[in-house]
Nucleic acid binder design. Structure first.
Lengths: 206, 206, 206, 206
DNA sequence: TATGAATGAGTGTTCATTCAT
DNA sequence: TATGAATGAACACTCATTCAT
């Protein structure tokens, strides 16, 4: 007899059907965020998260089958918050305006909880999590949609361009967040310079 | 004044005086690189490094007082390789040519051992290591020198610009390396677009 | 003011709330005593203690944040047993009777588990533990109270006298225990001779 | 074929035949003393001793087959120093004068290098070393000789008395040394009170 | 004979995870 | 369903001792 459905250790163990359970899940995820922010990777352990959330370690494992599942849930939560904001950028008529909005959203997201954002970016690079995390794909899809708008310069390989832009934006905002920058406007301006400069091929230089 | 001779847990424990010891040290550092590449953070432990190096765990600790000290030594080795290459860029007459060279060096360095470079970039962000690692400061110094050359656009805040450029370059080459890109030329071209685009303020766009 | 909630590595980690946990804690402390008795310092390691207690090493560290914390807990347990007995001596009307009782208690304590008592006396001299261990201070306080009773010879420096008496008593009972003496009465008689002889200034000699 | 003479790991490996070797041995033993004094048990390791002595670890093991052998050599050195001094006490005509001298010698010895003396007393209690160390037996022999002199009170069990006196003297001078006492005279006076008080059976009290 | 590089068993400690209550 | 006591594999690091040079 073959076990038909081995429970994945990366997906939440169960959809919380009751409202109380949903609350518990949310509080655990937020506790994970706080522990990650205040103690970094080194202090990010399931017992600490449970304690901070005010639940027992047993309860944590009731909802998340593994530490990675919890990390993924947190990544998804942040990605969702970002995506909900960023996708409104698509409503803008021009590609440029949409891109502006997208960049603002990225900067806002990063400076909202800089340490958390940075740590999640790093975690996301772990192969085990990469597959499961929603993160960049959706961001990349969003970008790819914008890049090919009429008012944008034609790109031979839009997927590569989208990937590069993500790398530029992330690199800049991560570093800025780590340095403790708070000025959303100034950072936004510089990121825009990099993005549009890249899109125009660096032509404006000489 | 603090105890002058308290052994720092981050600096190498003793300089290998005999040739055999020098070999051992080098083989340990290289083993660390390989373990980090093949097993990532999770598999990066001192026992694995010693095993891979073909030495006993005791030997490892004879030369490196802590795991962090070993990581730092590896970071320094890579930084030195990079710096030796990159600093040749200063010989170029124009700022643009120097910057071109610097970018090429960064791309080459990254694609030489992409996983390693990426992991070290991440490690470098750990506060404990940040202080000790030679890494970015020198890169930033190099960049700052180039930015203010005569043929480069005047920048109000060269230090911020240098930091942004590092972030852009690192972000792009890390991501490219992680995707498995091998084409040094193409990646170089794109990074140059981003860098010079940023420097010109994104003006070329419209 | 220092971080109030930094967990001290010398105090018990958590009070056992469930009865099962209390049992575990007690069995670990007793196991520590037995390991110390049967294997001495050299064999006194946390793994051995856990094994002897029939619990996992993890359980040990759930209640004691460090090996030293465990040692201190054991010292306190023994000190408490002794103190409860010894403090009854204060009820005696005369200083002499109180001192007699105190000496009896010390001899009893020592001969109850001689090796353990001796090893703990030695451990207590380690600077790291000295501060935390309740041990001699209370003993010394007890003695100091008795020395100044009316029927006792007047002493110029009662604190020095108390310290000397502790040293005499400890020295004698430790040595006796180590030699394997079992006769509580005889040892008590000799200790009393030393103590009262000292108190009278050795005058009875000539 | 039976190995006739397994080399004992506790006795010095070889009698240093050449003067240079004797110097080396002496410097190692003194280094052991210094390490023990400055770093206590925890820092007392063979590598540290070799370093402090200015010889290689290999050389140390050339003269001492084990760490314990080195410890024993140090104990013997101190015992010899003491014994040479103390045995002069026998020349005194009366038992009392001899005892006075012996006590003075013990106090002097202890306060000369208090930390060292204390640590060696503790080490001496380790069963492995106890057998080999010359220490107390000779001291006890000396005391036993004195106790039975004509002018001393008759003792039923001179061996027990001698052992008790050692315990009293050691206990008092160890504790005093640990407290940092420096006054040889005052300490000598108190030890004499305890010793002669004990010998007179504490009779002087009432 | 001296050196010091090398060894590896052993030790303290952590933390993801399980399961009896 | 919730709790938290219990587990034990895994890891960083030490140090007495050996042996090739």
């Amino acid at each position: 007899m073959s076990r038909s459905s081995r429970p994945s250790p990366l997906k939440p163990r169960k959809a919380p059907s009751q409202p109380r359970a949903a609350e518990t899940v949310a509080s655990i995820v937020e506790a994970a965020a706080q522990v990650l922010e205040s103690a970094g990777f080194e202090g990010f352990n399931t017992n600490a998260v449970a304690r901070r959330a005010g639940v027992s370690i047993g309860s944590l494992y009731q909802y998340f089958p593994s530490k990675d599942a919890l990390t993924i849930a947190l990544m998804r939560r942040e990605a969702d918050i970002f995506y909900e904001d960023a996708s409104r950028g698509l409503e803008h008529p021009t590609g440029k305006a949409a891109m502006d909005y997208l960049i603002s959203a990225a900067v806002r997201q990063q400076l909202r909880r800089p340490a958390l954002a940075r740590l999640l970016d790093v975690e996301e690079s772990r192969p085990a999590l990469r597959r499961e995390a929603a993160g960049s794909e959706t961001f990349q899809t969003l970008l790819a949609t914008i890049i090919v708008r009429d008012d944008m310069p034609t790109q031979k390989r839009p997927d590569v361009v989208a990937a590069d832009l993500i790398a530029i934006i992330r690199g800049m905002v991560d570093a800025a967040g780590q340095r403790g920058e708070k000025d959303v406007k100034d950072l936004g301006r510089r990121v825009r310079a990099a993005v549009f400069g890249y899109l125009s091929g660096g032509a404006g230089f000489d």
